[in-house]
């Protein structure tokens, strides 16, 4: 093994080791690039094991006439919630936004997203070792990607 080989691959190996240990407080870039919900969850949490809960309420229109602007509000009553991720399953890149919280959180995040077509919207909240999940369907009559 020559030195150049070592330098090249040692760097890659260190990178791989660090990958699953996404430090809290950095952008989950690879999850934003995921093309499926399962893969995005895997990249965000290292697991796609979800705990269904009614302590997450998603407020969104049942039918969105304009897919370019779909308001999504997530209300939650979960102690020590660390992050809230909003996922539009049928979008080209399903993860739309991910909010890192602090203990100051009072259980609300809200934003507006683009939706290409009718899709389930997932709200996923990490609290300790548990990944809580709720979802609801939003029907889109005009997609938001043509601009």
């Amino acid at each position: 093994m020559n030195r150049r080989f070592f330098v090249k691959y040692a760097g890659a190996a260190v990178g791989l080791l660090l990958l699953p240990l996404r430090a809290f407080g950095s952008r989950p870039e690879s999850a934003f690039e995921s093309e499926s919900t399962g893969d995005a969850l895997e990249k965000l949490f290292g697991s796609a094991d979800l705990t269904e809960t009614d302590r997450i309420k998603i407020k969104a229109p049942e039918i969105a006439e304009n897919g370019a602007v779909v308001p999504i509000t997530v209300n939650f009553d979960i102690e020590n919630a660390e992050s809230v991720s909003i996922i539009a399953e049928n979008n080209p890149a399903p993860l739309a936004a991910s909010f890192d919280l602090t203990p100051n959180s009072a259980g609300l995040v809200s934003t507006r997203i683009k939706m290409g077509k009718t899709s389930p919207i997932h709200a996923v909240i990490k609290a300790g070792d548990t990944i809580y999940h709720a979802s609801r369907e939003v029907k889109v009559t005009i997609g938001g990607c043509g601009g």
Partner: peptide, 24 residues
């Protein structure tokens, strides 16, 4: 810092972000 929102390109033009906090 009380919150960081990481947005993807799927967030609508002229983004709206809202949250609520305790302690202010």
């Amino acid at each position: 810092k009380v919150m960081t929102a990481y947005l993807g390109p799927a967030v609508s033009k002229n983004p709206y972000v809202s949250t609520s906090i305790k302690g202010a």
